[in-house]
Design a protein around this nucleic acid. Structure first.
Lengths: 232, 232
DNA sequence: GAAATGGTTTGACTTAAGTCAATACTGAAG
DNA sequence: CTTCAGTATTGACTTAAGTCAAACCATTTC
């Protein structure tokens, strides 16, 4: 791992090699096994992260111990940027913590911790990157906005939306085949439900002729009906 | 109304009088009666707003027609900034819309529409204000983060949290008396429930001795129990 | 002051989805 | 290849909260 990984981070596209090397020099690489925590919600804030390899899930734990996944971060995506700006807005720098939990969902996950202090100094000097950060935060806001909208719907709606979205991501082929790359448990958690309900909803879709399931693959057999459920 | 109202907007604190006048000169004041829409979710994006007088509720409509209030904006607060940054991030400027609905909740509400195009040009030239915007967006993200957390809880939790929060806002007095300034319907909508359930939850709290209700006022009679419900 | 309107409460009933428990399936490890 | 751990499915039952309807209360309008 070296500073060339940072070239793939869209937020850093306005930076030159020297600047990327500087950021890298005050960063800390971390390797994680599947299931290993990057940080807990209660931990003091050190900086934000870039995913280099593997996948990270960002999640909260409810009062009853259940998990709610907010999003998954894939290579070259970033997470935990927000406290950096709030921290610097505050006059009293009281112990700042992370706003959620982060865990590796794959073996051999690699992330890079970018220390907030020095990064923020860079941001203060470089107008271009602060504008890029505005773009990145606005995308995050858009995602949370959509998330809230989705959470207002019932579980079949949520699953239909997820399937339609995954279908769009895998291309324009006529054969609508989707690979569910995460565990059913994590999918249930992401959709804000429990394993049992997810299982039942998949089965209902299958019994109603909308999909066919084989292992990790879901073939959508009636895209129109599925779209209707997703959009209603 | 003149440009001096902008002096109260914390985001603009780094701007001088000349700059405030310039922003004001490409802005549009609007007066609204109670219940009047500022914008619908489907409308093309023109710019963001500052509340000068009165109150605005930002809300979404669910598939079944029910309303979900995301937040209320009071004087000198801003709303609808986010699309501005996304718009400029896109290469193709396809018709951008507002991400939610906005409506006046009080008579004689006054807002100021700040046009996005010229404002963004100002932002590109003034590093200080782009850093201020980063702070503002991060606060918005923090609010949505807390909102998602709250939405994971059941209705008694949500109401208890709301009451505790309102109690804290009205000062450190030993007598915990809260004025509910919005309609019970809007409160239900904000807490993600319906009038009936809100009414029942208030009544249960009252029957259990946690609160006493008189018109728009709620006196908290057992703050410890209420805190326990809020925090559990 | 009476009527209309808007806001709120209450009761009976229904429903989506969660809880708990047991069983089945799949892939990895030895 | 067998065993085991992790993952997923299924059934019976429960619950939080929503739906529908009616009644009540408070404020505004004429």
């Amino acid at each position: 791992m070296d500073s060339s990984v940072l070239r793939n981070v869209s937020m850093f596209s306005v930076l030159n090699d020297k600047e990327l090397s500087k950021i890298y020099s005050f960063s800390t690489p971390k390797s994680l096994d599947k299931g290993e925590m990057v940080f807990f919600e209660t931990e003091p804030y050190l900086g934000f992260y870039v995913v280099v390899e593997g996948c990270i899930k960002i999640f909260k734990i409810k009062g009853d111990g259940r998990e709610q996944i907010i999003h998954f971060v894939h290579p070259y995506g970033t997470f935990a940027e927000v406290p950096m700006f709030e921290q610097y807005e505050k006059i009293l720098n009281d112990q700042f913590t992370y706003p959620a939990n982060a865990m590796a969902t794959e073996k051999d996950t690699k992330v890079l911790l970018i220390r907030s202090g020095l990064f923020y100094e860079l941001l203060r000097k470089n107008h271009e990157i602060s504008l890029k950060m505005l773009g990145a935060l606005s995308k995050r806001l858009r995602h949370l906005n959509n998330y809230i909208e989705t959470r207002m719907k019932d579980i079949p709606h949520r699953l239909a939306e997820f399937l339609v979205q995954e279908c769009r991501r895998s291309g324009g082929s006529d054969i609508h085949k989707v690979e569910i790359e995460i565990t059913k448990h994590d999918l249930a958690s992401y959709l804000g439900t429990i394993d049992e309900t997810l299982s039942r909803t998949f089965k209902k879709f299958q019994d109603d002729g909308l999909i066919q399931m084989k292992g990790k693959f879901v073939t959508i057999t009636d895209i129109k009906k599925l779209l209707r459920i997703a959009e209603e």
